[in-house]
């Protein structure tokens, strides 16, 4: 996962006077810590941000963010703030906090602090200007860091979930010696189709399968690209020495297959999964016998 690199040293563009100004600024923010924090938390509640969290939680987080914020201003390094932002995101994303809320609260803090600076230096306009020159770039970078951290965390979660869905979505199951079934449920996009094929071909080798039943009852529709891919999968399986039986074709999919002009001599299709498994058992030479009072039970 890429991270935005916080600069290790103090920004070279910062002159000594800027550093001195920032130090004064930080001292001011430290002195008025309680007051400014409360003001900020009040503004957050007022703006109806972070509605998923309680007032106490907001205040607790606000305190941590405030301290990290002041520290970032003081040292000019953003690693600690970045780590905190990531950690915060990890905790609040599952609770449904949105990107605009996070960006919103950081910008609010920026405003609250700027407002307090206005108040303090309003008599000396020149000094105020220089203070803002020092404050604004740092504050912007902080806002940026927090927002990027939040978005990255979200993206990481989304990627993880996609991965999980993808892995869950393609089980290849052995139901009998030499017989695999591949039930497909849901939408097949080209990526998933490709993965299905790969897993199936590997499974044919690993299980030494001779017959495979692909059940697509759970697939509502299929575009011609994916339908073509299905036909290719059937052919590739045959090259490995396995016969494929496709079951559960819906009328729509049947139409798609006919429209792309699939060679039906290559496709072995059966109406439903039960019929498919019965056909597969027949091909493999299995015979299922009903357990009768006089005969010896289920034989295969």
């Amino acid at each position: 996962m890429g991270t935005v690199k916080g600069k290790k040293s103090v920004n070279p563009a910062m002159t000594e006077s800027t550093v001195a100004l920032l130090r004064e600024l930080v001292a001011h923010l430290r002195d008025n810590r309680t007051e400014l924090r409360e003001e900020w938390a009040r503004r957050i509640t007022e703006a109806r941000l972070l509605t998923a969290m309680t007032k106490e939680e907001i205040f607790a987080e606000a305190t941590s963010v405030y301290d990290n914020y002041v520290e970032a201003l003081e040292t000019g390094t953003f690693e600690a703030l970045q780590a905190y932002a990531r950690n915060l995101s990890e905790r609040i994303i599952p609770r449904g906090v949105e990107t605009d809320e996070v960006v919103g609260i950081v910008l609010l803090l920026r405003d609250v602090l700027a407002r307090s600076l206005f108040g303090k230096y309003r008599s000396d306009f020149d000094l105020l200007n220089r203070i803002l020159d020092a404050y604004e770039p740092a504050a912007n970078r902080i806002a940026n860091t927090v927002a990027v951290g939040f978005v990255q965390e979200r993206e990481r979660i989304i990627r993880e979930q996609q991965e999980a869905i993808r892995e869950l979505s393609t089980p290849v199951l052995q139901v009998r010696e030499r017989l695999l079934i591949l039930p497909i449920i849901g939408v097949i996009d080209p990526l998933r189709a490709r993965q299905l094929t790969e897993q199936l071909l590997q499974a044919i080798r690993a299980n030494r399968a001779r017959v495979v039943v692909i059940d697509i009852t759970g697939v509502a529709e299929m575009d011609s690209h994916v339908a073509n891919h299905l036909v290719q999968t059937v052919e590739a399986s045959r090259l490995l020495g396995a016969t494929v039986i496709v079951t559960g074709l819906s009328p729509d999919i049947a139409q798609t297959l006919v429209n792309i002009g699939v060679d039906l001599t290559k496709m072995n299709t059966v109406g439903d999964l039960q019929g498919g498994i019965e056909e597969a058992e027949r091909l493999l030479g299995y015979k299922v016998v009903m357990h009768d009072s006089d005969s010896g039970g289920k034989k295969s």
């Binding site: 790969e198 080798r205 999968t233 052919e235 590739a236 045959r238 090259l239 490995l240 020495g241």
Partner: peptide, 28 residues
């Protein structure tokens, strides 16, 4: 025929139609 090879062949439109195939020597 290896799984990757099989899929690559099919994508190129090579299907060895009417030729028998098997997983390995034993199956053959």
């Amino acid at each position: 025929i290896q799984p990757d090879v099989a899929f690559a062949m099919v994508q190129l439109g090579i299907t060895l139609a009417d030729v028998s195939t098997a997983l390995d020597l034993e199956e053959g």
